[in-house]
Design a protein around this nucleic acid. Structure first.
Length: 829
DNA sequence: TTCGGGAGAGTTTTT
DNA sequence: CTCTCCCGAA
């Protein structure tokens, strides 16, 4: 390593780092493993490390490879780097495993055996492709459903296996292997790759081409991996291609900087191997593992809870978070009789927090599974509190957007049968199942794509197909030379999509989304620096200029190779594309945008920055932090989830999940559970989660466990919660229960409420009614709940018996008169 | 082609 | 219960 001219640890860049962070950032250029606890400044360490390496002249930006799991993390890293270093970061490889693999394969498509314009299938596309394969092979779909088959293929690829290497133990696994093989052929014919294929191709190519491998290894002097605990087998192999473990008796050639937290490994269920961390330490002969245990996020009681909990896991690398922020508030625990009561309590609590000055976006409601959001949503909606649910359809997954993208993909690659089938008859143009069947048969018989087989279909159907082909060709011609924005606008109109949605009653939102697609494209062009003409994607150039601090002599690359094409990515450009003058790389903005659309599904529910309470699963919350966090549904069977409770691995993962949930909170943490819950249309009774028993009592405060408010509707005996009553006594019992200002909670403005109710709202509340039985005594001024209108306050009572009426002011529906013989009003408090 | 009934499933999920 | 998917009928 080059000696530094000055004290490299005294740079302004490093100011404010604690000793462990500083040690991590300034690790020598050799394999390093950083155990970075939650809230310990992991991203800061990662980015500062890169900036430090560059600033001290140890590497040029082109010599950096930094890989993450999500686009968000990659973007974040680039943004922070931009503020740390005022230099051009082009040439640096920062991205997701998939994004970087795509970049690699775009540069080496020929060597990788891919068509230049290869398209990327997302998970949904992949399932439909598998489905076609299953049909083609004549395998009974009901006995071998496409979805599991598609998963099996993805799993196999992520384990690094090709069809021939799959173990076969029964009929199903034999089918899966057959399907996998035929699926590969089909993908090759259509010029498409799925997500896992991006990585596997990259790995296989690098493993098979020593010269290429050496080139990249020499170029990337420093390789950094984020969230290392989440890597699967294939990703670990991928890493080893770019940064091989040091050979026996040799000094490490590269700096490999792996950052992870085994306690936050929550993706084992999809193939992540926590064991990769321990393996890495051995294989790469890491000299010293740096632990970042200073937490800058949470108060002491919250960290105590987290530490205590996770200590119950056996296989750990060992780490304990600590803070200097002081104990802070106790962790609050709440028991409710029903999920509905839990939601109601949560709403009250959240409203109070907001009144006390907390922004709503700093309040998060976390749950183990998506279904649990329902009750909370309806309670929030009726209370008029704005909220935002994360999860669900993302932008590029919306049907109308996928339709538009399918047309665009056909322009790029007419052989993409997945896209072909998606839009050949959408909008409807009289191409029915019969015609398509003929087309599929013809294509299969001749081993061609659907597009190529069109002429083989006779009669009227053939004519319609011909018209469709003309349409696509017309789109291609008409959009040649246009800007990306113009291309999309033209395609949306000329394909008939726009007219179709204009005619549809509820097509307005879809039209808006298509407009959004144009905006997304525009933003992409601006961000990625794409001009109006075809220009180069910043793919890797194999010339010395790009080799960073590890220049390679010209000619050294080509020599050991047996294939006949040159290594450099400079084939002559066919068609309308213009090769980039410098690199010879050819890619149109459209092609780049299509890759982008496949690799980045977009935000979940990005509404304009309204201040809203955040609802999400614990998984979705990983990496985020909030002032106040509610963890709901802490019940055996739910959290830990019943499917994971049987084996210790599953249970430990659930516990890590709980650990992640706890460590999201900065100032205040609420843990809540309910005696009963509506699940799959049935009331289920649960006991409180074992995780609650694994928390230090001294850090907890139980909030009124048997509040009068619940006794009313509780259909259960006095069992269940009795045994921990003592706890609440010890910690002060109900004394911590906040008083509510009378009447204040109803005074919210309608404008604060979310604009549209969820479509299921009415139905979801029928269940709430079921929760409250008994004969309520009503009096004016009292809080009441109505199954349809939600929470309100009782203003007037009139009449008696069958004529009894009540006037109620509801939070969101205004003042209403209700016949008590019909309306079910439940007192709430 | 579209609509509606019936069946089946119902942790977590990025790319 | 509630959503999705698939098939059959109009």
């Amino acid at each position: 390593m080059p000696p530094f001219e000055h004290d490299a640890t005294a740079l302004p860049l490093l100011r404010g780092l604690n000793p462990e962070q500083l040690a991590a950032v300034t690790q020598p250029a050799e394999p390093a493993l950083i155990l970075a606890g939650a809230g310990s400044g992991k991203t800061r360490v990662l980015t500062t490390r890169i900036a430090w390496l560059i600033q001290t002249g140890q590497v040029s930006p082109g010599g950096i490879l930094a890989v993450t799991f999500t686009n968000k993390a990659a973007k974040e890293m680039l943004t922070r780097l931009g503020t740390l270093l005022p230099i051009n970061l082009r040439g640096m490889w920062v991205g997701t495993f998939h994004g970087l693999s795509n970049r690699f394969l775009r540069a080496h498509w020929k060597l990788a055996g891919l068509p230049q314009a290869f398209q990327i299938l997302d998970a949904t596309d992949s399932v439909s492709a598998v489905k076609r394969v299953v049909k083609a092979l004549g395998i009974p779909e009901e006995r071998c459903p496409p979805k599991p088959a598609s998963w099996a293929i993805a799993n196999a690829k992520e384990a690094g296996l090709r069809p021939g290497q799959l173990p076969i133990h029964d009929e199903l696994s034999r089918w899966h292997a057959e399907i996998y093989a035929a699926y590969e052929d089909q993908c090759a014919r259509e010029g498409v790759v799925d997500f896992a294929e991006l990585l596997l191709r990259t790995v296989e190519l690098l493993e098979r081409e020593p010269a290429l491998r050496t080139h990249y290894q020499q170029r990337f002097r420093h390789v950094l991996v984020d969230e290392f605990q989440d890597t699967n087998t294939l990703q670990y192999r991928w890493l080893q291609c770019f940064a091989p473990p040091p050979a026996r008796g040799e000094a490490p050639g590269q700096g490999v900087f792996a950052v992870g937290d085994d306690d936050q490994s929550i993706y084992a269920f999809r193939g992540a191997q926590v064991a990769n961390m321990a393996d890495f330490e051995q294989l790469y002969r890491v000299r010293q593992v740096v632990k970042l245990e200073r937490n800058y996020r949470s108060h002491g009681n919250i960290l105590d809870a987290a530490n205590h909990l996770i200590a119950n896991n056996s296989r750990r690398l060992g780490k304990n978070l600590r803070t200097e922020a002081g104990a802070g508030e106790p962790v609050r625990v709440q028991e409710s009789a029903t999920d509905f009561a839990e939601a109601q309590w949560l709403v009250d609590e959240a409203r109070q927090l907001h009144r006390e000055g907390s922004p709503r976006k700093e309040i998060a409601v976390l749950y183990r599974s998506n279904a649990q959001s329902r009750v909370v949503e309806s309670a929030l909606f009726n209370a008029g509190l704005p909220y935002k649910v994360y999860g669900g359809l993302r932008f590029f997954e919306r049907a109308e957007v996928k339709h538009a993208l399918a047309y665009l993909r056909l322009i790029e690659n007419p052989d993409d049968d997945t896209s072909f089938l998606r839009v050949v008859n959408f909008p409807a143009r009289g191409i029915g199942a019969r015609t398509l069947e003929q087309l599929v048969d013809a294509a299969r018989a001749s081993g061609r794509s659907l597009h190529q087989a069109i002429d083989a279909v006779p009669g009227k159907g053939g004519a319609s197909l011909g018209a469709f082909r003309k349409l696509v060709e017309g789109l291609r011609e008409a959009t040649a030379g246009l800007t990306l924005r113009e291309i999309i606008e033209h395609v949306v109109e000329a394909s008939g999509l726009a007219d179709h949605y204009r005619a549809e009653k509820e097509g307005e939102e879809r039209l808006e989304n298509l407009g959004e697609l144009v905006n997304a494209a525009e933003a992409f062009v601006t961000q990625e620096g794409f001009g109006k003409d075809a220009i180069a994607l910043p793919v890797d150039e194999l010339g010395p200029a790009a080799a960073g601090s590890a220049p390679i002599a010209p000619g050294t690359l080509a020599a050991p190779r047996s294939a006949d094409e040159p290594l450099a990515v400079a084939p002559a450009a066919p068609g309308p594309l213009t090769p980039d003058a410098e690199t010879g790389e050819i890619i149109s903005p459209l092609a780049a945008f299509l890759s982008h659309a496949s690799l980045e599904a977009g935000d979940n529910q990005a509404q304009a920055g309204e201040d809203a309470i955040q609802l999400m699963t614990v998984h979705a919350a990983k990496g985020l932090e909030f002032d106040q966090v509610f963890i709901t549904g802490l019940e055996e069977g739910l959290f830990p989830h019943e499917n994971a409770m049987s084996d210790s691995d599953g249970l430990e993962e659930e516990r890590r999940l709980m650990y992640v949930a706890i460590t999201r909170a900065r100032k205040r943490l609420y843990l809540s559970f309910s005696q009963s819950r509506m699940l799959h249309g049935q009331v289920r009774y649960h006991v409180k989660s074992r995780f609650l028993d694994e928390l230090p009592e001294g850090a907890l405060k139980w909030l009124s466990p048997r509040q009068a408010g619940f006794g009313h509707g509780s259909p259960y005996g006095s069992g269940g919660a009795g045994h921990w009553r003592g706890d609440s006594g010890r910690s002060g019992g109900d004394s911590g229960r906040r008083e509510r200002e009378p009447g204040a909670s109803w005074g919210h403005r309608a404008s604060e409420a979310p604009a549209t109710p969820p479509s299921w709202l009415g139905a979801a509340q029928a269940q709430a009614a079921a929760a409250s039985t008994g004969a309520p005594t009503l009096r004016p001024g009292q809080g009441v709940f109505h199954t349809k209108f939600g929470e309100g306050v009782l203003l007037t009572l009139e009449g008696s018996g069958a004529d009894a009426r009540a006037q109620v002011r509801f939070g969101r529906h205004g003042i209403k008169w209700l016949a008590l013989s019909v309306a079910k009003l439940t007192p709430v408090d």
